[in-house]
Design a protein around this nucleic acid. Structure first.
Lengths: 228, 228
DNA sequence: CACGGGGGTTGATGCCCGTCAAGGCTGCAG
DNA sequence: CTGCAGCCTTGACGGGCATCAACCCCCGTG
């Protein structure tokens, strides 16, 4: 890949790459590839042999699995400046554990597994960053497993809405849904119909107001308490 | 902790510790503590500040979360020679992300976080082992999230039973359930009643035979195919 | 022996949510 | 403009699973 000052600066501010020396970064970029994708375009499939992990620069990518009956569960929605599929780095026979597909036109960087592994060997700080990142993901998984196992669909929808807000939001707040409702539904593990009905129910109770992809939460604290 | 040749030999065969030098291992053990627990005894609670991670030597420990209504979801059942709670190593403000409790009388080793972090800094091989281990756990989480989101309780029970078998089991196989059925139920995220009924259903169909905590699978391949 | 408690099973009931089907809305192509 | 496709909504319906309750069995204790 051609050197690119904008990209270099971007990586320098990324927790995974900020500890690398100039030489290491150069080596990494030399083995990396830029990739542009159209909405709906396929990146990799669950089970594919893997030699790359990715950084999303713009757009949106979904990581998902399909049941035999064709139902889709979105495991993670990737946003710009997030990396994904790092876990293939340490597998013995690396293969993607989920499928990946662009939800919007997207631009991403594909990093070479072996090159990055070589750099890891030289940089404990980067090792730390990788391990910290994996820890964050593991925590998120515990949370998701808990809500799937112990909470109903209403809780999951409300939890998703609250997750869109800044941490210290209060009172009346408006958010715009980041993607189509179908995608959100597959993310919180309900059908589009149920999502629609749940939002309707919440708005009938006066907890939210919905207009297209604009959702206004009338009182954040009340919603948090009413989650049950 | 006092040096203990049996324990030292045990650690030498553990993937997490097998790459350490004698000096490192000694340092680690000096800061570690042995702990014995009775059945039902509490090890740590979700949210507790954390300075230790653990290796189970004997017995059985459950890692779980409780819903506000008091429902329990067991996230992981720890077996002898498994380590757990390593993820507290890389948190900024380390706190246990789940609760831990002995299910049987257990014996375990508590390792000191800071000491192990210091050793990690000196041993890339051990870093690799840690990262590989985290990767395995992440993969298991993907699988669990998928089955919770996309599969019904019958599938989860059958999947659990099949998971008790050796990888290449065939034909008629007997297994004994490793713990009380209540615990298994909380592990596969159903109520004890539903677990009981599901086993009943499977045995009415001739797929399994149940007698106390002995389950015989009449035909492993048929059960695998009949999962859905 | 009676007693009690915990684990497991079974039955009755209800509700959450998925499925199927129809209809509205919007944006795009002809 | 018309037609069409995709997304969203709404309604009717049914099944899976939780809940509540009763009962059995086993085992340790007084």
């Amino acid at each position: 890949m051609q050197a690119d000052t904008a990209l270099t600066r971007e990586l320098r501010h990324h927790y995974l790459f900020c500890s690398l020396t100039d030489a290491q970064l150069e080596r990494l970029l030399a083995s990396a590839a830029l990739r542009r994708m159209a909405a709906g375009e396929h990146l990799f499939a669950h089970g594919d042999a893997a030699t790359q992990f990715f950084l999303l620069r713009s757009g949106c990518v979904k990581l998902y699995r399909l049941s035999p009956e064709g139902n889709e569960k979105i495991m993670r929605l990737i946003r710009p400046s997030q990396t994904f599929a790092e876990s293939i780095l340490f597998m013995e026979a690396p293969s993607y554990p989920v499928s990946g597909e662009a939800v919007e036109p997207s631009q991403l960087v594909a990093f070479d597994r072996d090159t990055f592994l070589g750099i890891l060997r030289e940089s404990f700080a980067t090792c730390q960053a990788v391990m910290a990142q994996m820890t964050v993901r593991i925590q998120a998984h515990w949370d998701e497993i808990e809500t799937l196992a112990l909470q109903n669909s209403r809780y999951r929808v409300v939890h998703y809405l609250l997750g869109l807000l800044p941490r210290n939001a209060q009172g009346r707040v408006a958010v715009t849904l980041p993607t189509r409702k179908m995608v959100i539904a597959a993310h919180v593990a309900v059908t589009p119909e149920t999502l629609s009905r749940t939002l309707r129910g919440l708005s009938d109770e006066g907890l939210i107001e919905v207009s297209g992809d604009e959702v206004t939460i009338t009182d954040v604290d009340r919603l948090r308490r009413r989650i049950h």
